[in-house]
Design a protein around this nucleic acid. Structure first.
Lengths: 136, 136
DNA sequence: GTGCTTGCAAACGTTTTGCAGACTC
DNA sequence: GAGTCTGCAAAACGTTTGCAAGCAC
């Protein structure tokens, strides 16, 4: 399956097992810890390299949910996110929320949006908006 | 004007001059270089600190246009962006592109989007979509 | 003089890279 | 055996912080 050009090594097998057995997005550090639970000698930089390869093959994608580390998920499960910039709460945003934006971007600029790569930041119902000058 | 709590120092005055005399978004490194052209002893970390203060006062905002450094702009000029993830080309996206998304996010999740903080990534008309496996 | 502000250097967290050895094919 | 993949260490990147001296007030 992933012999499409590369080699079937232990670190890759375990990484794929971890990826397929978890449904939410996970940071590289998370993934590395999970991999190392089964194969302790696998190095963080190897996880980075394998994630990069898997992304190139189209198996996974990475997403930025705000400041902080990127998260990875299976490409077939990819979706968009709303992330509260105050408390970090996340909402999964179905594709249909973006149809209007996608149409306008395409018509006006010939631009094809990929709303899954970067989250939409904002404020959830529990977090008040910023009041300028209130920064203490 | 900006004596709202702080002190009027040379580094701040020059930084504000630079900010008000440029209309596009600028990285911290850019800004620091421009400041240092007039006041060579100003340190990069001072620019970071002053930008942080100005943002807290509501004078400026920062935006992430993709991977790479944040960009700063005057708060009154803030707007959203579409950024091509291949070539980096940027489009300014007027607020009205987001009304549908804003309404849906609010109705469904009580979420108030801030589309200016993070750009919407995607592909411009000149850049083909990714073909998985074509990563070389 | 008080205490905010600065330069500097050093740390930070995340990600990338150079290298020699190990492994898959 | 050829060439890919790995561990490790170190660097890169953007950003933050601790500290003592410096300046605005």
């Amino acid at each position: 399956m992933r012999a499409s050009g590369g080699r079937a090594t232990a670190s890759r097998r375990v990484l794929l097992e971890v990826l397929f057995s978890s449904n939410d997005h996970r940071s590289v550090e998370d993934l590395a810890a999970a991999v190392q639970a089964r194969a302790p000698e696998v190095h963080l930089s190897t996880v980075y390299r394998n994630l990069e390869d898997l992304e190139r093959l189209g198996v996974i994608v990475h997403t930025h949910l705000g400041h902080g580390p990127a998260t990875y998920q299976l490409a077939r499960d990819a979706h968009s996110h709303l992330v509260c910039e105050r408390c970090g709460r996340r909402f999964e945003a179905p594709e249909e929320l973006f149809v209007g934006l996608a149409r306008e971007a395409s018509e006006r600029y010939g631009f094809t949006i990929d709303p899954r790569h970067f989250a939409i930041l904002g404020r959830c119902a529990d977090c008040p908006p910023d009041v300028p000058g209130d920064g203490a």
